[in-house]
Amino acid sequence: MDFTSRYVALGDSFTEGVGDDDPTRPNGVRGWADRVAEQLCAADPNFGYANVAIRGRKLRQILAEQVDAAVELNPTLVTIYAGANDILRPKVDIDDLLAEYNDAVGKLTATGATVVMFTGFDARGSKVFGTMRGRTAIYNELVRGIAGDHGALLVDYWRFSEYYDWGMWAHDRMHMSAAGHGNMAKRVLEVLKYDHSIDVPPITPVPELSRAEAIRANAQWFREYAAPWVVRRVTGKSSGDNLQPKYPQFTRL
């Protein structure tokens, strides 16, 4: 089928949909981008959706593997979020990375597509990821400049205070929950000025824990999620190894 409207989603686990589990979908996840595409497809029988995001990808990997693939699909809409996995590394040259990001966004906007970018989240509520606030703030200022220079739209994740509710996050504390992904879909559609009928999944309340319970919960989190994440970083492995894009060609949802 030839689609007259074509949305391509690029990025890492954020865009792939990790945290919004759905065993009926490719790679076992749904995510905000799928939710956005569902709304757009429902309104337009000639709308096609591709999602080439892969969890664990760093910025240069996303640019090398996904940007040219997106350009070849001749998109009319592109979303891209890259760099979060770089910020978490022990050392990173944000200026060099964002110079390459700038070139890639220029290539995407040159297709004539509407391009949507994202700032990084302010993780001040996390004792682990909150240590990266300074890096993320620098990243965000550079992203704002890139978006302004190329006429891209910006989803300002940094300012979304609703994500300070831990119910918006999955058990791994690294990815959004179904509620978080549903809310992000609404945020993206609002930036696109698109009327939608998204029903955001309810937030699962996070109970208050005693000091002893919190210590046990944190220990369990470290064993199940943090330690494997550290091991992958040390060994050069990725959670996205051996995974293929969810929707490498246009489809309808």
Results as ranks from 00 to 15, higher is better:
1 M>N: 04
9 A>M: 08
9 A>S: 15
13 S>E: 04
13 S>C: 10
14 F>D: 02
16 E>I: 11
17 G>T: 05
19 G>F: 02
21 D>F: 08
29 V>R: 05
31 G>V: 05
34 D>M: 13
35 R>L: 14
36 V>P: 04
39 Q>R: 02
39 Q>C: 05
42 A>M: 03
43 A>T: 10
48 G>S: 03
49 Y>S: 08
50 A>Q: 04
54 I>V: 15
58 K>G: 02
59 L>A: 10
59 L>E: 07
61 Q>Y: 08
66 Q>I: 09
70 A>K: 02
75 P>Q: 04
76 T>P: 02
76 T>S: 14
81 Y>L: 15
84 A>H: 11
90 P>R: 00
91 K>H: 07
95 D>H: 11
96 D>Q: 14
104 A>F: 10
105 V>T: 03
106 G>L: 04
107 K>I: 09
108 L>C: 03
109 T>G: 01
113 A>Q: 01
120 G>S: 13
129 F>D: 00
135 R>C: 05
136 T>I: 14
137 A>P: 01
139 Y>C: 11
139 Y>F: 15
142 L>C: 05
145 G>Y: 06
148 G>F: 11
148 G>T: 14
153 L>T: 13
154 L>A: 14
161 S>Q: 13
166 W>E: 11
167 G>T: 00
172 D>V: 04
172 D>H: 04
177 S>H: 01
177 S>K: 02
183 N>T: 15
186 K>I: 09
187 R>D: 03
187 R>A: 11
190 E>Q: 11
190 E>L: 04
191 V>Y: 10
191 V>I: 15
192 L>A: 06
195 D>S: 13
199 D>P: 06
199 D>Y: 05
201 P>D: 01
207 P>Q: 01
210 S>D: 09
216 R>G: 00
222 F>V: 14
222 F>G: 10
226 A>E: 05
227 A>T: 10
228 P>C: 07
230 V>L: 15
245 P>M: 09
246 K>G: 15
246 K>E: 15
248 P>R: 05
250 F>A: 08
250 F>G: 07
252 R>L: 09
